[in-house]
Design a protein around this nucleic acid. Structure first.
Lengths: 227, 227
DNA sequence: CGCAGTATTGATCGAGATCAAGCGAGGTGG
DNA sequence: CCACCTCGCTTGATCTCGATCAATACTGCG
């Protein structure tokens, strides 16, 4: 990490669109953002480790952050945070320490919120609490979805689902550009990189073409048949 | 389901100890409980299906409820709710439909909260919103924990973890009594019933003795070595 | 050009699902 | 009272998926 800086106008704009600030009016957003500074991390920098005493929560402004459990020989990713995603908000409500480790992938810029300051806001501005709660709800639903998919679907199906929910449609055809490395997508889906590779190979039979980060789906309905 | 009844005194007491009511004072608890009635379900009754329009959220008073995704040939359990656990609260904040199906295991009595009524309470009683948010936080943490374990640990390790976190210690020795059928424990841990059985067999080598629902752990530290 | 990080491909292995059969306890009815 | 059934659990045999290990190709990049 470099230095903590004031949020720029552009960064405040990104933050205003994030789910953590959704439904808040101008004044409430300002109050919330007054608790935040911008911080920058290099690839592979660790923001914090599981069980560390928590002083901040974060919202990704650019780059990617992975949240994971375990250490060294045995790691499992819990969530990959993209721009607009926040993490650690739950500590505003209760808890002393982080429940997972966080590591920046690529260069990442984040809004860092001071937990104590945000806590102090809650009584006067209950709608900020609601915004946090809505954000928690979305994380909960996403995590449950992930858990159910892990338990129910094969690697091919999970990859196909990712493609179908992230592609931009052009009639029957569709395309997408992966926002990050394949190894990170593999982690997100709970797979070894090799398994992701093989899943892509297998999906060629369903009209999926991969070249680097560019992916093309020949026919969306054909791909849906892998379920 | 039979009939909706007023909550009895004993039921209100259970509810008061549930995490959904934690941190609320008498008056707030009363307000919250005024939105609830008691309902009773027979084993295998389905409370609702995924995507059903949501009118209620629930808190388990007795018995067990499993939350699951998928249908018929392909099901995955997301959570097993025990007495004191609530589910569907997130719909107070946003969303129209349930995100999973819910089925009673054994006879189950639940407090059923009317979403519309609870929503109406929130503005006047923001601390009720906080209580719901805290409950969501706990579900989120539990679900992330489950996801990480699924991705990291073998069946034996997950079973051992369950035993160690649910047993009552008596020095090095420890015992516990399963609160429900083994098949339900298997679902909770994301295993086929056969796999749970085999995990128990394997754990015999670590001093675990199983007879029916009664389980004994010869030495807690020995068992911890499976990690 | 050559190197480092990233992705693919092949070969092998192991965990757990699935299928099928057998066991044991509780319940019912003749 | 005992034969019989059902249900939950266990055990064995097999199979499939994905992890792991190892080698090779690909892609920027200094």
């Amino acid at each position: 990490m470099t230095r903590a800086l004031k949020l720029s106008g552009a960064q405040r704009a990104v933050l205003g669109g994030a789910s953590i600030a959704s439904g808040l009016d101008r004044q409430e957003q300002d109050a919330l953002m007054s608790c935040a500074v911008a911080v920058r991390y290099e690839p592979h920098d660790v923001l914090f480790y599981e069980h560390d005493k928590a002083r901040y929560f974060y919202c990704v402004l650019s780059g990617y952050v992975r949240l994971y459990r375990g250490s060294e020989d045995q790691e499992a990713d819990i969530r990959i945070c993209e721009p607009g995603d926040s993490f650690g908000e739950c500590l505003v409500l209760e808890g002393q320490g982080y429940h997972y480790s966080a590591q920046a992938m690529e260069h990442a810029i984040l809004a860092r919120f001071d937990l104590t300051q945000v806590k102090a806001l809650l009584d006067a501005q209950p709608r900020i609490g609601s915004a946090i709660a809505r954000s928690l709800t979305q994380h909960l639903l996403a995590t449950m979805d992930c858990l159910a998919r892990d338990r129910m679907q094969t690697s091919q199906q999970r990859v196909a689902h990712y493609l179908l929910t992230h592609c931009t449609n052009e009639g029957a055809r569709a395309t997408l550009r992966l926002p990050f490395q394949k190894s990170l997508l593999a982690r997100k889906l709970g797979l070894a990189p090799e398994a992701l590779s093989r899943a892509f190979s297998a999906l060629r039979g369903s009209g999926v073409t991969v070249s680097g980060r560019a992916i093309a789906i020949a026919d969306v309905d054909t791909l849906r048949q892998v379920f």
